[in-house]
Write a protein that binds this DNA or RNA. Structure first.
Lengths: 124, 124
DNA sequence: AGTTTGTTCTATAAATAATATAACAGAACA
DNA sequence: TGTTCTGTTATATTATTTATAGAACAAACT
């Protein structure tokens, strides 16, 4: 999977990395059981520090997207049974939709955008 | 309008403040022309520093949610003509929906959540 | 035996966030 | 006119976060 990092972004590198991997899982570029590059490999190929990648992997582990196998490294393993999810998502959507509403972006437009994005994620 | 701040949140205080005000506008608690408390007043009532409130107001000004009148202070004035909006929203939604998709939250559930939230924002 | 894995520790530099104190010009008001 | 309030600006300090670096560890694979 191709991982691009924007060094001019105001987002932390490890957050960008985490986001890319989560989106990779959603879009099926990464599947259950797939092995992520080692922290050293990925750091090398992107051109950032090992510890930055390690932090991204740690966050992904804590959020339930990967498990770490001593022998194989970081493996995609999704813990779908996370109850906080809906509430967490509600909080994030509240802000985004508030901005949309202020800017006269209609509910229909948002629904269309949702469908378009979900299309790229399996489509369920 | 009631503004609550979570001091235990990992979100910066000025971001929380900004978010609350944007949500206040979306939910019509704040309307075009309404005057926000002065930076000193609001800081006092919340129990934070004046500069933190000032930063929130500055961000809101730059994002096109308030204008600052020398005499009256910060006034709600929405600049709806911001073209970056949809693209900005797409980027944010991509991550949120990726997480949702990974956790088997269906497109229908997301649509329902959108409707529920939009309900509180005028409903258009 | 040697390599690679994630992990941990210590350390440093830069950026960000929050606080504090002070001062300024413009406007409102008595 | 003098006082008060407005956002704004400047300087400074502290704490936290982010990213880097080098070193070392046990576990597992070749």
């Amino acid at each position: 999977m191709l991982i691009e990092i924007d060094f001019n972004s105001d987002q932390a590198l490890y957050i960008q990395l985490r986001n890319r991997i989560i989106m990779g899982i959603a879009s099926n570029e990464l599947q259950e059981g797939d092995v992520l590059p080692s922290v050293r490999q990925l750091a090398e190929s992107i051109g950032i520090n090992m510890h930055t990648v390690n932090k991204a992997y740690s966050v992904l582990k804590q959020e339930g997207f990967v498990k770490v196998d001593r022998r194989r490294g970081a493996v995609i393993a999704i813990d779908a049974a996370r109850l906080e999810n809906l509430e967490e998502m509600r909080g994030e959507l509240k802000v985004i939709l508030a901005k949309a509403s202020c800017r006269n972006i209609s509910r229909q437009e948002v629904h269309a955008l949702i469908d378009e994005i979900y299309e790229g994620y399996g489509g369920v």
